[in-house]
Computed example of a mutant assay.
Amino acid sequence: MAAKVDLKKTIDGYRARQGEFRVLEMPPLPYLMVDGHGDPNTAQEYADALAALYPVAYTLKFASKTDGRDYVVPPLEALWWAEDMDAFTRTRDKSQWDWTAMIMTPDWITEQMFEDAVAKVSAKDRPASLDKVRRETLAEGSCVQTLHIGPYDAEGPVLEEMHERFIPERGLRMTGKHHEIYLGDPRRVEPARLRTILRQPVSVYEC
């Protein structure tokens, strides 16, 4: 059997350093996705989204392994936005947040494999939000990203620096949705040591 593939080690978008903003080009990538709204800490909708995503992701992994292509399930990711983005960066009014929870899949995962995985999960202990899980390709293109170390609620100043200094000073403008990649498990890692990649799609500003 071939060696287990770890996509975090082969895709540039999983590399970031604290205190460094970097412009990179992201290729289109396939994800499992669930959409929702509200505070991720208190909304049952967010917990239900994760409870549906992970079983499908691991069922796909084991199906792929059986076919001879094993891989490490990538980390949880999420897109975040609000009608007024100050609710995300400054006031942190989580009740106003919209989100898409996501787990990337390898490009060799087919639609039939996805459908089979959903059916298998459904036959066991069907998650409440299983019907909301979909496969979609995310095409972000040019992005700016950095690594944040610390509690999620301490991201605000880093995002302000990214949005209000780094991006405009390079003649760029924000496009797309704020993207986070969670490299640490908050159930096992103390808040001060959490590692989160913060990513913002951008384009060249045109007068």
Results as ranks from 00 to 15, higher is better:
residue 117 A to Q: 09
residue 102 M to T: 04
residue 77 E to Q: 05
residue 70 D to E: 12
residue 189 V to Y: 04
residue 196 T to N: 09
residue 65 K to E: 15
residue 89 T to N: 02
residue 188 R to M: 11
residue 149 I to S: 05
residue 85 M to L: 09
residue 27 P to M: 00
residue 146 T to R: 03
residue 32 L to G: 03
residue 96 Q to A: 14
residue 38 G to T: 09
residue 181 I to H: 05
residue 141 G to K: 01
residue 34 V to Y: 03
residue 4 K to M: 10
residue 34 V to L: 03
residue 47 A to W: 10
residue 135 R to L: 15
residue 86 D to C: 06
residue 96 Q to D: 14
residue 50 L to W: 15
residue 37 H to I: 14
residue 179 H to N: 03
residue 17 R to P: 10
residue 71 Y to K: 00
residue 77 E to M: 02
residue 60 L to P: 08
residue 55 P to R: 00
residue 38 G to L: 09
residue 136 E to R: 13
residue 152 Y to D: 08
residue 152 Y to M: 09
residue 42 T to Q: 08
residue 80 W to E: 04
residue 189 V to F: 09
residue 28 P to G: 07
residue 182 Y to G: 02
residue 150 G to A: 02
residue 80 W to G: 03
residue 163 H to Y: 15
residue 66 T to L: 11
residue 75 P to L: 00
residue 78 A to F: 07
residue 187 R to C: 04
residue 39 D to Y: 07
residue 52 A to T: 05
residue 66 T to Y: 13
residue 195 R to M: 13
residue 178 H to P: 14
residue 102 M to S: 03
residue 134 R to M: 13
residue 22 R to C: 06
residue 34 V to E: 03
residue 172 L to C: 05
residue 160 E to G: 09
residue 29 L to R: 04
residue 96 Q to K: 13
residue 96 Q to V: 06
residue 119 A to W: 06
residue 199 R to I: 03
residue 49 A to R: 01
